[in-house]
Design a protein around this nucleic acid. Sequence first.
DNA 1: CTTTCATATGAATTATTGTTCATATGTTAT
DNA 2: ATAACATATGAACAATAATTCATATGAAAG
Lengths: 126, 126
Amino acid sequence: MKECDIMSVQNDVERCEYIHAHDEIITQVNQNMPDDEILYDLAELFKIFGDSTRIKILYVLFESEMCVCDIAQLLNMTQSAISHQLRALKQSKLVKYRREGKTVFYSLADDHVHTIINQGMEHLAE
Amino acid sequence: MKECDIMSVQNDVERCEYIHAHDEIITQVNQNMPDDEILYDLAELFKIFGDSTRIKILYVLFESEMCVCDIAQLLNMTQSAISHQLRALKQSKLVKYRREGKTVFYSLADDHVHTIINQGMEHLAE
DNA sequence: CTTTCATATGAATTATTGTTCATATGTTAT
DNA sequence: ATAACATATGAACAATAATTCATATGAAAG
């Protein structure tokens, strides 16, 4: 147990008298912790999964590519609401789209979506 | 292409004239889509991953169990902020804790955290 | 080129969430 | 019992985010 000399920036945050973590652990944490920017992006990505409308959209797309209007009908929501959410999913590269005349078909971008959602489901099931 | 007769509840949501998805697809979607309650819980779970403070806490706990105060120091945040976030992580059963005298040690609850975060990282890397 | 239909988007509104501050709880030592 | 310390928590405030509404863009058909 020793005084804190962990972070490069020492701010005026209140702290307890002794830290329990040993030097070795602290070094490991600092080594293995990705940059703030990456952690921020990671949180932003999970935020996308953190809305039931978007989760439903992803589940719909598990079955087949689908146009905005079909998704809106399946989920019983307005075209606008779905379009806004599809934009979020698109920006996170979780879905891709192709245009066919007037209609735009959306589909899943890669298999990480499946894995992430399945792991989430497994966790819930425990 | 046929008129919409998908959802059991037909609300006054605006809709396009024709749906593109075939009956077969629609049946599959309705069969494979989990109940609303489960989808809500799933979104709630991912919401927990959708904050960089909580992501950082999880990364710290990847290395070792740790007390609230150590986490606060490592992340250069107040004890209160960390405690509030640990409560969220606790409620989602992503972390567990044990008391040792005055201090409370938190650790990861199961391996889904690892898998989910790793998949998120992989997705970002692409 | 005008109309129609599917989709996208900006702005406003409402709802949700993270942090802070003050204080409470719970544990150990005196 | 009282003091000291670690943690937890309620309320307030500030920051984000989801949906709605009105409207814009873009494509096909007349």
